[in-house]
């Protein structure tokens, strides 16, 4: 049924007047994966996701969730999707349990079944202590947990979450990550968007990058860093006279200076060759460079993404 992936998007397009928000987006997400959907503000993330959850209709293209075409059969598709929007509007004069109760009723739960489902969701999201609290008085983190609880009520196979951690404090962010891990362990397919890479790298099996309405990269977090991994960066700290590092590097054949700063600099090796790196360090010491610290510098995902984006734009 979902040979091409539990989520399958093909040549998706959406324009708003003269603005092309989504330009031929295609990707497939295998069952049970957590995929991070990353892009700058205005890159087309939310538009793509809204089309995936049947809240918007594409101008062209196909979206299938669990093999169901969401444009052609939206009612069927909705039963399989849990949608958490980026902004969470609250209802005045409504307690947390009443909010969940309303959605449980709207999803067709009746009587005891409804009460049991509510209890399960409230336990999972730890909303029990807040059950009687009025919605407008919830903190951002509590509101996001409530929103996730609502998303989980129908026990959907696919969760589509738009910037769920935006605006959360570090503690709430950690709590939210834990909930996502639990859901992933439970076998849910999670498609989660953010414009903060580091936020997703830890929890995602794959990262999908969108820029100006086009997919520019799709792969594991490691695959994003790989192109630069072939030419490793090393940071050096010297006991004074950093300019000597520049003079010394200029005489070395397989090493290049990336940057120089007050207490040292960064160099790049031609290849990720352990012998080359060890020999270079040895020569530094022999040649009298006062090396205090020498360590490999891991490229951040953000840097890798920005570099990759630069390449895409240049191409």
């Amino acid at each position: 049924m979902d040979a091409g992936g539990i989520i399958e998007v093909r040549d998706l397009r959406r324009t708003f007047g003269a603005i092309e928000a989504v330009r031929g987006v295609s990707f497939a997400v295998p069952r049970g994966q957590v995929v991070g959907f990353i892009g700058a503000n205005g890159a087309g993330k939310t538009t793509t996701m809204r089309m995936m959850v049947t809240l918007d209709v594409p101008d062209a293209g196909v979206i299938r969730i669990c093999g169901v075409d969401v444009v052609e059969r939206p009612h069927e598709a909705r039963r399989r999707i849990g949608w958490m929007p980026d902004s969470f509007g609250t209802y005045p004069h409504m307690a947390v349990w009443e909010y969940l109760d309303f959605f449980a009723r709207a999803l067709g739960y009746r009587g005891r079944e409804r009460r049991e489902r509510l209890a399960q969701v409230m336990e999972f999201t730890d909303l029990g202590p807040l059950a009687e609290q009025d919605m407008p008085t919830l903190s951002k983190g509590q509101a996001q947990r409530l929103c996730l609880g609502r998303t989980l009520l129908a026990d959907p196979e696919v969760l589509i979450l738009d910037e769920p951690a935006a605006g959360l404090d570090p503690k709430a962010r950690l709590e939210f990550k834990d909930l996502l891990r639990l859901l992933a362990d439970d076998g849910k397919t999670i498609f989660i968007s953010s414009h903060i890479l580091s936020e997703l790298a830890e929890v995602c099996d794959a990262l999908l990058f969108i820029d100006e309405g086009r997919i520019v990269h799709y792969g594991s977090p490691a695959s994003l860093a790989a192109p630069d991994g072939a030419r490793p960066l090393y940071a050096l700290e010297l006991a004074g006279a950093p300019e000597r590092l520049a003079e010394w590097v200029a005489t070395q054949p397989r090493v290049a200076l990336v940057e120089l700063h007050r207490r040292g600099g960064t160099i790049r090796f031609e290849a990720d060759d352990a012998e080359l790196i060890a020999a270079t360090l040895r020569r530094m010491v022999v040649d009298g460079l006062p090396v205090v610290d020498f360590h490999r510098q891991e490229a951040s995902l953000e840097d890798a993404f920005v570099r990759m984006l630069g390449k895409v734009k240049a191409a």
């Binding site: 902004s87 609250t90 067709g108």
Partner: peptide
Amino acid sequence: RELRDRTLELTFLTRL
């Protein structure tokens, strides 16, 4: 208010 806060569209994802 519901249209502005987009709370209404969440109900359309249910059976309502």
